[in-house]
């Protein structure tokens, strides 16, 4: 059993106080592992990620990062805590060039800026080639890579990702998810929301299933993949979740 990097305890959160979307969700993401959150539409998957990132207000419960309480952070300070968030769409600044997008995220890196920029470009060669193009001109897959690179620019220990494969071709989705896998080898903890359940379960180490703002089921991803009930609901049974 490895150490828990980020953990939520019974968090209740939502856009209006009277109508919480999350009604007490607890998840624990182990360090340098991929934890995937799945569930039907409206289960509160994205809200959970946004609540951790400080974009949705948590009204009760806590979020702990390496044992430290970081409930309701100011969104702009999450990076300083070592948590990066990659939104599902609009996750890059289209009017800036690729290089400017990354420089913006590295603006507090001081003397290391150039070296870290080079390191990021080394990791994503296609981005290096197009570094002076407007980010809005990138293809879907490359846009996702830029978004991941921007998250990495914060030197995070945890990355929260909201459906990184949404809207991508199967090939591009595969590439992006494989890259996410590689990040864990460098010690980064990943929490991922996915609609593409089969792909997500193959990729992930641990999986939480949410329904109606509550924990429904969780376990090692491999177990859930072979679980007949999960298979019935999500993997080719009649009620396939929207993809």
């Amino acid at each position: 059993m490895t150490e828990v990097a980020l953990q939520t305890r019974d968090i209740v959160a939502g856009y209006v106080p009277e109508l919480p979307v999350l009604k007490g969700v607890s998840v624990a993401a182990q360090a340098a592992k991929i934890t995937v959150i799945i569930g039907p539409n409206g289960a509160g998957k994205s809200t959970l990620i946004k609540a951790i990132a400080g974009l949705v207000r948590v009204t009760s419960g806590q979020v702990h990062l390496m044992g430290k309480d970081i409930t309701n952070p100011r969104p702009d300070q999450m990076g300083a805590h070592g948590v990066a968030y990659v939104p599902q769409s609009d996750n890059i600044f289209r009017s800036l060039t690729i290089r400017q997008n990354l420089e913006l995220l590295l603006r507090n890196a001081g003397a290391e800026r150039a070296a870290r920029l080079d390191a990021l470009f080394e990791q994503f060669p296609p981005l290096a080639q197009k570094q002076n193009q407007k980010a809005g001109a990138l293809s879907g897959g490359q846009r996702q890579f830029l978004a991941v690179a921007m998250a990495l620019a914060l030197n995070p220990s945890v990355i929260l990702m909201d459906e990184p494969s949404a809207g991508l071709s199967p090939k591009a989705a595969q590439e992006v998810l494989e890259h996410v896998r590689k990040l864990t080898e460098r010690g980064v903890t990943i929490i991922l929301v996915e609609q593409n359940v089969k792909q997500a379960l193959r990729l992930a180490d641990h999986c939480y299933i949410l329904a109606d703002g509550r924990n429904q089921l969780d376990g090692p991803a491999a177990d859930l993949l072979s679980d007949p009930v999960v298979g019935q609901i999500y993997l080719g049974g009649k009620r396939v979740a929207a993809t």
């Binding site: 974009l55 969104p75 702009d76 999450m78 939104p87 609009d90 996750n91």
Partner: peptide, 19 residues
């Protein structure tokens, strides 16, 4: 860049560390 970022997408600008 931060000025332009905030103008384009305030939410993303925030999670990018802009106050």
């Amino acid at each position: 860049y931060s000025l332009r970022a905030v103008a384009e997408n305030p939410d993303l600008a925030q999670v990018s560390g802009i106050n």
